[in-house]
Every structure is written in C-alpha cells, then in structure tokens.
Design a protein around this nucleic acid. Sequence first.
DNA 1: GACAAATATACAAACGTTTGCACAATTTCC
DNA 2: GGAAATTGTGCAAACGTTTGTATATTTGTC
Lengths: 327, 327
Amino acid sequence: MVTITDIANALGITPSTVSRALAGNPRVKEETRSAVLEAANRMGYQRNVVAANLRRGRSDIVGIVVPRINREFFSNVISGAESILDEAGYSTLICQTQESFDSEVKALRNLRNNQVAGVLMSHAINSPDGSHILPTLGDIPVVQFDRVFNDIPGAKVFGANFDGAYKATRHLIEAGYKRIGTLAGYLGTEVYAERLRGYRKALEDCGMLLDDSIVFPNAIVWQTGHDATLSAIAAGCDALYSAGDFSALGAVAALQEKGISVPRDFGIVGTANEFFTALMTPSLSSLEQHPYEMGREAAKAFLQSRSDVTVIPMDLHIRQSSNRNAI
Amino acid sequence: MVTITDIANALGITPSTVSRALAGNPRVKEETRSAVLEAANRMGYQRNVVAANLRRGRSDIVGIVVPRINREFFSNVISGAESILDEAGYSTLICQTQESFDSEVKALRNLRNNQVAGVLMSHAINSPDGSHILPTLGDIPVVQFDRVFNDIPGAKVFGANFDGAYKATRHLIEAGYKRIGTLAGYLGTEVYAERLRGYRKALEDCGMLLDDSIVFPNAIVWQTGHDATLSAIAAGCDALYSAGDFSALGAVAALQEKGISVPRDFGIVGTANEFFTALMTPSLSSLEQHPYEMGREAAKAFLQSRSDVTVIPMDLHIRQSSNRNAI
DNA sequence: GACAAATATACAAACGTTTGCACAATTTCC
DNA sequence: GGAAATTGTGCAAACGTTTGTATATTTGTC
C-alpha cells in the first residue's frame, strides 16, 4: 500500500507537502502540486481514509438509520439523501433497526464509534423517546426525518401528516361514506399522532361524530390492520383511513373475507403510496409522502448544519379503493 | 471523549494493559480486568474504532454492494447477511450502485479506502466484466452473490437459475401453452444467461421448437418488458417466461392493453417473487430465490473465508398468471 | 533456597494522515 | 536597499489504539 510518505520520498519532499498538495491547499506551488498528483497517479496511491479520519477526529461518512430498508418509503429517502451526500463527497452507512429499540441504540453507538460526520435517522416505532440519542451520539449532528422526537435538538424533516390525513379523510367524507374509522398506528410516534389529529379535524369540520371506539391504535402491519378492520366492520364502519399501506392491505383482505365490496360498501385510503398500491385489485388510494424529496431535504439540512423544521407536502392519490363515485 | 489512556491514568496502569483488558486478553489478571471494566463503565468510555482500525489495518465493517436496495430481493439479501454479520461483531456498509458501473467502481474504492474487512457484492447489470474488482479491492476478500463473475476468485452464492427457469418453463408447457417466449434480461450477466439455458433445455426436453426470434434479451424493467411483450404477441407467442418480475409486470400491462386474457390465452411466469406479485390481478406466478438465505450464506462464506460456490434452490410459486387449469 | 517457568504489566513504536508553527526564500513596497 | 509582507516547504506532534518485546513479579520444582 503506497502512502504519502512514499510519494514524498520519491519526489524528495516531505509528507506534509504531499498532504497539502493532495488536499488542494493553495499554499503549495502549482508545479509541486502537479508533480505530486502525477506521482500519486503513477504509483497508484489511494488515500487511507481511516488514518485521515483519526487525525481529523471525524469522517466523511454519514450514518442513515431506518427501521427497515425494504419499504418503498425508506429506501427512497435513502436514495434521495445519497443523491445529495454523494456529490458533497460523503458516503453513507445505512443501518436498519428492524423496528427494535435495542438495535437502534446499537446502531447509534456503532455510528458514534465510527466517528460519522452526522446521522440521519427515523426512529424505531417502539422507541419510547429520544433520550438515548444525545448521550449516545455526543456532539454528532443528527437530522431526524419522518418519525421525529420534538424534544431532540437538530433539524427535522417530515411530511405534512396533519394535512395529508385531513385530505384523505375529507375525501372519504366527500365520497359519501358515513362512519369513518382509522387504523391509527402507534400513537406514541408523532407522525401517527398527527395523522390522527388530521383525521379528527376533518370529521369535526364536516360536523361528523368523533367516536373513539372506531380509532384503532397500533394497527400498522398486515395482521393488525386485518384484525382491527374486523372490529371496525363489527362497529358499523363503512370506511377507514389507514395511517399505513400494509395495514390497509390487511384491511382489504378482511373486507374481502367478509364479502364486503370495496369501494361500493366500504372505502379505504392508505398512507405511503407503496409500489403495490397501484397494482392490487381494487387499487388502493394512498397518500404520497415524497420520500426522495424528504431524503434530499434531510441531507441538505445536515450539510448546511441547520436545525430547523422542513415540512414536505403530502399528495392524495385517489384510486379504486375509495373512488365510489367512479363505479 | 475518554480514552484508554484516561482509564490507565485513573487506575495507575498503562494504556496497553487497559487495551488488553478490554480485548479480553487472557494475560491480564482477572482483578485488573474487572477494575478496568468498572472504570470504563463509570467513566463512559467508548472505544475509538477509527484508531483501532488504523492500527490493525482493517475494520470490522463489511461492505455490501447492490444495484438497488428497494428490491425485495436485494433488501432481503442484506437483511440475511446482517443477521449473520451482526452476531459475529461486524457492522455493514451498504452501497447501492443504481445499476451504474461507475458508481460500482466508486463504491468499491470507497470501501477499500475505509479498509473494510470484506465485501459482499452483486454487480451492476452493465458491468462489462469483473476486471475492476481485484485492482480496486486489493487483498480484501470479496464474496459475490446472485450476479457473479466466474473468473473472479472468492466465494460465490447464487440461485439455481438453470433449474428455476427450467421448472418455470416446464410448468408453462404442462399448462398447455404452445409457443413460449422469454424476457431474458441482460445476457452478459451470468444469472440471466443461465435462466435462458434452463428455458431452452425445458423446451428441448419437451420436443418443442427453439426459436431465437422469441427470445427477448435486455427486457428487464417495466418498459422493456412491456415493449418486448408487444413483439412477442406479434410473433404469435402465447406464453412468456420472464427473468424478472418488473418486466413481467410490464408484460401483463401490455397484454391487458391488447385485451388478451391471462392466463386463459396467455401464460406468464416471473422471477424474484416480489411482494407485489401476490397482490396484482391476475396474481403473478414467480420464482422464489430465497434471498434471505442467500444473504446468510454469503455472510457465512466471508466469515469462514471460504472461496467455494453455494447454490440456493429456487421454488416456483404458481399463481393465477400461469394457472390455466384452475380457471 | 536457587533456578526455571509462568504470569502480569510496562515500554515504546507503529498505523498514515493532518496541521500549527517555524523558517527560508522570494516578492512587494516605500 | 532595507523592512515588511507573501509564498512555499519542512518539522514534529498529534489522533487513540494495538502489539512485539522487555521487564518485573509470582509460582513451581528439585
């Protein structure tokens, strides 16, 4: 492995000059710089990033912590963030927590130990609060996206969850559904709490009854969505706003089991606009969260070391599952 | 930031002893070890991995290079690999190349510069050959999975592509389809070439005509699958084995446009068993590649520094799109 | 009790880079 | 033409850890 010392020896200069030449320091003569570059190239020099990081006390790696990478939402956030970080010369270290709090702590500790320059994160759904973040990361800047803890300092980027849920619910109302419940997700997580508020506001604005017995918290994956929907049917619902697409998928399955026609007798809108929503029958109306954009914004917030809040609008994609007027 | 030197000073011993104590070196007295551990704990010591890596000349990071992370297949390979690497004390550095050769070279270089302990990779579809791998990675062990270059040394893990394609094609034949084409993917990539061979062998074994005009190479995403299918229809095909699920999706769309009934008048089988295949109408028959298992095997091959070949069986999931006999 | 063997710790160098400071050489300015 | 500013390079320390070798201490054996 060839080092800057090797280059320095070959040229009869010192490692410090080589280092400066390679770093583009303006204090080294143009002539020397080109000689160094030529030698580095010829000798096949590759910078030892580890050594550099040790000396500088930080690296050019940005950690990205997500619950799972095989969600359309998170993988697109990652791609968006990478698109920005890449051209800024950073590489990314992706960690998935599999929705486990312990894994999340481990991931953050790991990132800290690797002296990452920053962390973009969306916490595991059952992380009780953000009190583990600062102690683990120390002074490493953290940008939270989507699932954020409001009491943690640093930038935050998330979707317009209130507005989105409001739109979705309002759309169901306007389609003529009369008793609209919600698969609400984990209400300890801010995004889901917001969506519930948006759902409530829509009902309220339209003079509809707020009935807590048709708010189903913790319904977020296929199975819980399915089971909650059976309860919703029993409770006389004729529509559901689901805070997730996978739970909405379970809901559709439950409705099909019961022989209830969607959208004729039951309307449903999901959230996340997963790839499959457009493919299923009936296709699933869903809220698009613009994850790619969100990833880009999170990366930018890190690069500019901002610590403000960015809200990304959410768009409703109306498909068959709620489009009663089209049948 | 507290270092081993701080701990050493606090206890009146030297950093080397602290280092050995923390590393579990049996040459340090049990008494000293526990004192070190206690002090480390009390003082909030966190190992500086970067410094350790520099000294050791390698890290406990394993790089995983994939074309895209938002594919059911790749994200599950990653999860499988992580499950093994995690418990062996490694963390993972995930890079997506977005199917670009240049990104792949950049990713490998980046991993090399970060002194990763090893690399698990599946090359970009248009990487011409593996000649960039060794020069970039030097002596870092590389395990190739799924898309492998046979002439690169090191372990390889891939699916039984020949058998899988054979099974899929044979299934179409047995369902009574008469003129079966294939959306073959990039034939420069070994997995696709193998699938084509399996497809051919099945036709041959059943005494059917081999017709190169209904072999559609480079059909691999929605659009190319869609377009090739229009040609297949024009060429009188009544079935397609598709080497990918996204191209099969495009195929179904093309058939629907043309008003051709699936599976009654046209059969189709995809590959990868993406999540959406079970949800669409008609649901798509597809080959399951057991990516999670593949990831685990790749990680094990790295840990055991093997350099052999592991083949993972592929299973056919028969769904509506080819199940003519069920209608 | 002398000597060898085993045990436990210390010393110091090394990993490859960055960077503050010093210094020499050159240029600029009055 | 001399002082001051500028430019280009070298020196050496530092980042925090690991590890080969040396040294000190304890244990074991006859």
